[in-house]
Amino acid sequence: MELFTNQVLAGIATGAIYACMALAVVMIYQAIDHLNFAQGEMAMFSTFISWQLMQWGVPYWWAFPITLIISFAGGIAIERLLFKPLAKAPVLTNVAGFIALFAIVNSVAGLIWDFTIKQYPTPFGTSPFLGSQLISTHQAGMIGVTLVLLIALYFFFQFTRIGLAMRAAAALPESARLVGINTSWMIALGWGMASAIGAIAGILIAPVVFLEPNMMGGVLVYGFAAAVLGGLSSPLGAVIGGFLVGVFENLAGTYIPGIGNELKLPIALALIITVLVVKPAGLLGRPIVKRV
């Protein structure tokens, strides 16, 4: 029983990483209706920017907000420059655009900062949290930040005018324009916010997985999976999905014999697909009703 509790705790700790990433995924999915494959790479790049700032002697608590601002602006710039011209292109062409962006960001980061892994500091410390060896103060801090972020997003979307406008633009672009919302800029704003949230995710994840250009590869897949599991239309679902994926992955690794590290990911994905077959809109997602 103790083993079980411990594994669940450890799963929650890893799940926090996925939850954070999933939140960024849902954010951009809400704004643009696509899964952005380059999201993880953008988060990685942001994390490198903060690392570079710290290398130049900027203290952590300055580097953090500066990075967020740069990421926000960067996200908007990418949308305006690269994806606004594709707004009228077919969906699959946009997906190809994400793949191109992925290749560019990954390659540029590799050139600037090379592929050696780098230590990344944590503001929360790495001592055991509440006496548990399995969950460190950093991971506890990460869970805390994710939850705060979730609540902040909830308030933003429910109670601010711009949040309402963003929701309207995502739900029904044409109607949104007819009440005077500039939907094109709402999309750009969505990119900016997703990029900033991705930066937070990257900065929180980096102390655990170490900093390098490929650090987000696996994390993003889990983030997507978590977001899909929770229902792509629900930020709360994404966070819950993240924790569930983390816990399941750990339990499967412990209790099912023969699952090495390598089979963890396929097994986790298989579970998610099973859930989707039963509940196609995800755990908390709104079912999409199609009209003939």
Binding site: R161, L164, A165, A168, A176, V179, G180, I181
Partner: peptide
Amino acid sequence: NLQLGAIS
């Protein structure tokens, strides 16, 4: 919906 009508 009504708030959205006045959003601009």
